[in-house]
Design a protein around this nucleic acid. Structure first.
Length: 424
RNA sequence: GGAGAAGUGGGUGAGUGGCUGAAACCAACGGUUUGCUAAACCGUCAUACGGGCUUAAACCUGUAUCGGGGGUUCGAAUCCCCCCUUCUCCGCCA
């Protein structure tokens, strides 16, 4: 959520930047917000004045009662009753304006960083880095969904039976590979200075709001309605919300946390031609890195996080590229996002395996996470996160790219974790 | 799930209708003192949203907030109702 004070003072700039993000209603919605804000402040001014009068009267009554002047007190009480009517009307109006304003404000996406290009779709994303070479596979090379069957690693039909489509059952070396990747990613994160966190997998609505999933993406989350809890779509939600309603000390920054969780996504309406096998799931595993940063160096930290993810892919020996997302392809809450895509050789396509973003103060303003600076004032922190990494497409790439007549080769960095160097 | 107790500022903790946005102590910060450290002493020390003044800051000022929400009252941390959380005991249980 953008800060109303900033929006008030920088209307034109805000609208211009929102258009970079393809937010076409910018002009209209920002004008409405500013209008409502002015009305709201007016109501507050009047409400505060009335309340102030009422407080003075209440004090007078107290003094008169103590002095034993009951009759005089009664007279003053009358005056107070009159004020009450007005106060109620003004207070209600104030609350109403606030609600109207906030309802609009939460619909406004974050402003893009100055380096973000305008653009509408994934076509307009800019490749900023590429590493590794695409493997040359044999003519009869198989896509991962066939390899999975061939080596009995993952069973989609079984998952569909016990739960539904998009909930795979991992078996044998397939299951072991999952556990190996999770441990590998967590160990690498800890080596890079992140603290390991194991959060709950369900969160309340306040948390969903804090990181921006609610109300914007309500339909994308599984909702346990009996208890009004949401299954997390990413560990970002619980791990970032650890710092909701917190005022940190400046010297505590940056805070580096990492955690593994399963991720649950309804993916309503997202199913299409390209979503076979592991390409898109309702439940998948992911290790997420999260940082709470000082606004002054959050972009430096974003680079550090990008470097971390790069390192992981190199150790896994997977060819990849990094995209800087254009305005139209960026998420609601992000100011700058780098997507990582591995080249999945048998499918002959790039698959997104990580998304690493700086949210600046968009989430922290929703969450009320600030730090106390040396000047004694509180400022909003910047929040960042990145997948490091999402497992299914890593597995897909690994299986497809490393297939040989005698089996699938496991990258050396992973062998200590799997306990085997080949799937056959 | 049942019964009981409790939730106050960074921490401990006082406060059962007005003089309490909140005592006291501790921590923290600034200062005095000091060869250094320690101690002592003085001061500062919640958050949000407004208003005034201002280029801005400083400063002055209003309102709200004592787990959350609602109510009673001229006036609520204090009384009433609902909810949440924690602790203890019982039940159940991986």
């Amino acid at each position: 959520m953008l800060q109303i004070s900033y929006l008030r003072d920088n209307k034109d700039e805000v609208i211009r930047k929102l258009l970079v993000k393809n937010f076409t209603r910018a002009e209209e919605i920002i004008s409405s917000i500013i209008q409502l804000d002015a009305e709201r402040r007016n109501f507050q001014k009047e409400t505060d004045a009335i309340k102030s009068d009422a407080n003075v009267i209440a004090k007078q009554v107290g003094e008169l009662m103590r002095a034993g002047k009951k009759d005089e007190a009664e007279v003053v009480k009358q005056k107070s009753s009159e004020l009450k009517q007005k106060e109620k009307f003004l207070q209600d109006s104030l609350v109403q304006k606030e609600e109207e304003m906030n309802n609009l404000l939460v619909q406004v996406p974050n402003l893009p960083h100055s380096s973000v290009a305008s653009g509408k779709t994934a076509e307009d994303n800019e490749t900023v880095f590429e590493w590794g070479s695409k493997p040359l596979l044999a003519q009869d090379a198989l896509p991962h969904w066939d390899l999975i069957k061939k080596y009995d690693l993952i069973d989609f039909e079984l998952g569909a039976k016990i739960t539904g489509a998009g909930f795979p059952v991992y078996k044998g070396k397939g299951a072991r590979l999952q556990r190996a990747l999770i441990n590998f990613f967590l160990d690498e994160a800890v080596k890079a200075g992140y603290k390991e966190i194991m959060p709950p997998h369900l969160v309340n609505a306040d948390s969903g709001f804090g990181t921006g999933q609610l109300p914007d993406k309500e339909g994308q989350m599984y909702h346990a309605t009996a208890d009004d809890l949401y299954l997390i779509p990413t560990a970002e939600v619980p791990i970032t919300n650890l710092y909701r309603d917190v005022i940190l000390k400046e010297e505590e920054l940056p805070i580096k946390n990492a955690g593994y969780t399963p991720c649950f996504r309804r993916e309503a309406g997202a199913w299409g031609a390209h979503v076979r096998g592991l390409n898109r799931l309702h439940q998948f595993d992911k290790v997420e890195i999260v940082q709470i940063a000082h606004p002054e160096n959050s972009y430096q930290i974003l680079e550090e996080m990008v470097a971390h993810v790069k390192g992981l892919l190199k150790k896994l020996e997977l060819p990849f590229r990094i995209l800087r997302l254009c305005g139209g392809d960026m998420s609601f809450a992000s100011a700058l996002t780098y997507d990582f895509e591995t080249f999945c050789a048998a499918q002959n396509r790039w698959l997104e395996v990580s998304s690493t973003s700086n949210f600046e103060s968009f989430q922290s303003n929703r969450m009320k996470c600030r730090f106390k600076a040396k000047d004694g004032k509180n400022y909003l922190v910047h929040t960042l996160n990145g997948s490091a990494m999402a497992l299914p497409r890593i597995v897909a790439t690994l299986l497809e790219n490393n297939q040989h007549p005698d089996g699938i080769r496991i990258p050396a960095a992973l062998v200590p974790y799997t306990g085997f160097d080949k799937i056959n």
